[in-house]
């Protein structure tokens, strides 16, 4: 069944009470062994999609196959093929890490004599051997996420769903988790479906990214391809004291449209890409304008999000939070 552990969704829709279309027609395909990043602001429909794909929520319409099984008609088969770490590490604060794994492996039907070794293996893989017999109440946020990941892996699933696995983690814990997820995909061939609201996470970790906003996928592709689609980098110059900023701006605008810059800087989006940088330098030089700092910015996924939705991802997240509050 190794060749059948991808995800295919067609026209997935989920509406909630009051006609809220949380997910509004999603088509996506995730190839076996791929890390797929589902990027979007809070409230975009990421978690609802994950709940449908993991069989916890029936879709209002549309179909999806996970590991070759229909998510509506073959729920039990889907569940045995997948592991999931859903948002807000759902752990029992009064149980220890090891007790969690014991319960999880038992309910998944691992043979009794294999369970202790499997628990040790999982605990050491996520770096919780020392803390294994402490109650989860005393764990840090990072430790809880790691235990959550270990639990999702207990029955060696072919497909892993991670719903915002690093939200609220410090940078070190985040990096450690990224490394573990990347290793799972590379060494064990696990397919990973990961939701995130962090651009960097999608950029670093995902083979392919789907950008979701208001329940719809607005762009999809490899991070590089998505950025190339927007294509054009920006150049930013900070004039040296004595150089007239207005003059600098007038010259830069010959190469592209003005765009946002740091307080003292002037930036434009280059019409014909990075090769124009040399022309920019020559033009400034021939006008006798000195600059303190000149930098080329490659496009980011935020630029992609901005181009597709008209908002920046950070701004969209704040807006969603205000809406919820």
């Amino acid at each position: 069944m190794r060749e059948e552990h991808g995800i295919e969704a067609e026209g997935l829709v989920r509406t909630f009470k009051g006609d809220i279309r949380a997910v509004d027609g999603i088509d996506l395909t995730v190839a076996p062994g791929e890390i797929y990043g589902f990027l979007g602001p809070n409230g975009a429909g990421k978690s609802t999609t994950v709940h449908m794909l993991t069989t916890l929520l029936p879709p209002t319409s549309g179909t999806a196959r996970v590991a070759g099984y229909d998510i509506v008609k073959e729920g039990p088969k889907v569940r045995s093929a997948i592991g999931a770490a859903l948002q807000e590490a759902a752990l029992d604060g009064l149980l220890t890490g090891r007790e969690h794994i014991r319960l999880q492996t038992a309910l998944h039907g691992l043979p009794r004599r294999e369970r202790p070794a499997r628990a040790d293996e999982l605990l050491s893989r996520v770096g919780l051997t020392q803390a294994a017999d402490r109650k989860v109440n005393g764990y840090s946020g990072g430790m809880k996420r790691r235990l959550d990941l270990a639990l999702a892996l207990a029955h060696r699933p072919a497909i892993l769903f991670l719903d915002e696995p690093t939200t609220g983690l410090d940078p070190q814990s985040r990096t450690a988790l990224w490394q573990e997820v990347a290793r799972l995909a590379k060494d064990d061939g696990v397919t990973v479906f990961l939701t995130t609201q962090y651009l960097e996470e999608a950029d670093v970790l995902a083979d392919r990214v789907g950008i979701i906003d208001h329940g719809r996928i607005v762009a999809e592709g490899t991070p590089a391809a998505l950025k190339a689609e927007i294509g054009r980098p920006t150049v930013e110059a900070i004039p040296r004291d004595g150089a007239d900023p207005a003059e600098v701006a007038r010259i830069l605008e010959r190469f592209g449209e003005p765009t946002g810059a740091s307080p003292k800087g002037i930036a434009v989006r280059l019409e014909r890409g990075a090769q124009q940088l040399a022309e920019v330098v020559r033009a400034l030089d021939s006008a006798g304008l000195e600059v303190e700092h000149l930098q080329l910015h490659a496009p980011s996924l935020d630029d992609v999000f901005l181009a597709k939705t008209g908002r920046s991802l950070e701004g969209a997240a704040e807006e969603a939070e205000e809406g919820q509050g």
Binding site: T54, T55, L56, P76, R79, S80, I82, G83, A84, L86, Q87, E88, A90, L91, D92, Q104, L107, H108, G109, L151
Partner: peptide, 16 residues
């Protein structure tokens, strides 16, 4: 509390 924390979802994903 199991419902609130999502622990019930975790159990629901097992063959329990």
């Amino acid at each position: 509390r199991d419902v609130q924390t999502g622990f019930l979802n975790r159990l629901a994903l097992t063959p329990m």
